[in-house]
Design a protein around this nucleic acid. Structure first.
Length: 349
DNA sequence: AAGTCGGGGGC
DNA sequence: GCCCCAGACTT
């Protein structure tokens, strides 16, 4: 058997039963692919089920508000995916009569759909011969063929795309694409792959040269920035609070949070007080404050480590643009905020 | 070509 | 602590 036959044979006997594998509905395939971008199946699965249930058709998704979509996406991260998802749903619903493009070239034009996702939808939903190259494919091919070209270099991206295009089973592109990805996810894993039971272990270059742990090669590491966040958890006698929407570009765009004061270092209570006397959020208000967490809560993102303090601000009456505390749960918020809300028992007030 | 964008999990 | 995950988009 050749490479593609070994893979598809292995896939037939080892594939997981996943909901998006029981359909060719382009809407379902598209939804699953967006959710699974940079996301493990285990993490994305419950979100897929929730979206299908909440929005059975692309029209249902198109008719929702962005805030509702972000709320359902809450916790999954990379929120631009959710915003683009909504944009594309509206486009497909209103401009394309609810019909997704049925080929790679046109799929590529959709917002949030890049080379990988266009190839995935074209092959899986429409059986087009379009090779997918995701993190799994990079790993499988770099190891099996012993390719040291960095997978995130311009040359590497072209080289692996070309190689995958030459290897794909033209008779069953949908099965081949899913097979090589599934193989990378559960057999040719990043750490400690069990090569002794691998169907490709008689011809894998990396295994022969003992290079498994050094492939694939990837350039540069991300530089992590440290930031200091002070959230103002305002509470008044009528059980109201403040939330603000993050409208600017950057992390958590269009999600909500407690009013934020960013500082250049972790603030003491005295420094925090001084900051507030000059800040507009609380001006003209008489308030008492206390620090909820003595130790900074550290929230780690890919490129940022957030050292966070939650300041509890109690006052008699907040301005009328405040919201009822019990309404907080309706707003999409970052995990950092939702974790605080859960830990901080507002009922004890 | 390099940066940015989340959160969870493996080791 | 570092790396990875069914990547896309911006600069």
């Amino acid at each position: 058997m050749d490479f593609k036959n070994k893979l598809t044979y292995w896939y037939s006997n080892n594939k997981r039963d996943l909901p998006w594998r029981n359909t060719q509905n382009p809407y379902h395939i598209w939804l699953s692919e967006i959710i699974l971008q940079q996301t493990q199946v285990k993490q994305g699965l419950p979100y897929y089920d929730a979206f299908i249930k909440q929005y059975p058709t692309v029209f249902d998704l198109a008719n929702a508000s962005e805030e509702e979509v972000l709320k359902l996406w809450q916790g999954l991260g990379y929120y631009s995916r959710a915003r683009n998802l909504h944009t594309t749903a509206k486009h497909v619903a209103s401009e394309l009569n609810g019909h997704f493009p049925n080929n790679y070239k046109d799929l590529l034009k959709l917002k949030g759909v890049g080379d990988y996702t266009a190839s995935a939808i074209a092959s899986i939903a429409f059986n087009e011969v379009a090779a997918v190259v995701d993190g799994n494919v990079y790993r499988v091919l770099s190891r099996y063929f012993g390719i040291k070209t960095p997978i995130n270099s311009t040359d590497g991206i072209k080289e692996f795309k070309k190689l995958a295009s030459n290897l794909i089973d033209k008779e069953q592109p949908a099965k081949f694409n899913q097979a090589i990805m599934e193989f990378g996810a559960t057999q040719c894993k990043p750490k400690n792959p069990n090569c002794t039971v691998c169907p490709l272990n008689d011809s894998c270059i990396a295994l022969q040269k003992d290079m498994i742990e050094f492939l694939p090669v990837k350039l540069k590491k991300t530089k992590v920035k440290t930031r200091f966040f002070n959230f103002l958890v305002c509470i008044d006698n009528n059980k109201n609070t403040f939330l603000e929407k993050r409208t600017s570009k950057g992390i958590w765009q269009n999600l909500y949070q407690f009013p934020l004061l960013e500082s250049h270092k972790s603030l003491s209570s005295e420094e925090f007080h001084l900051l507030n006397t000059e800040d507009s959020v609380l001006n003209n208000l008489k308030f008492d404050y206390s620090l909820y967490n003595t130790e900074d809560k550290v929230h780690k993102l890919s490129h940022q480590h957030l050292y966070t303090k939650f300041w509890i601000i109690e006052t008699k009456e907040l301005p009328n643009n405040s919201i009822a505390i019990k309404e907080i749960k309706n707003y999409p918020v970052p995990v950092l905020i939702s974790s605080f809300i859960e830990a901080f028992n507002f009922n004890d007030l």
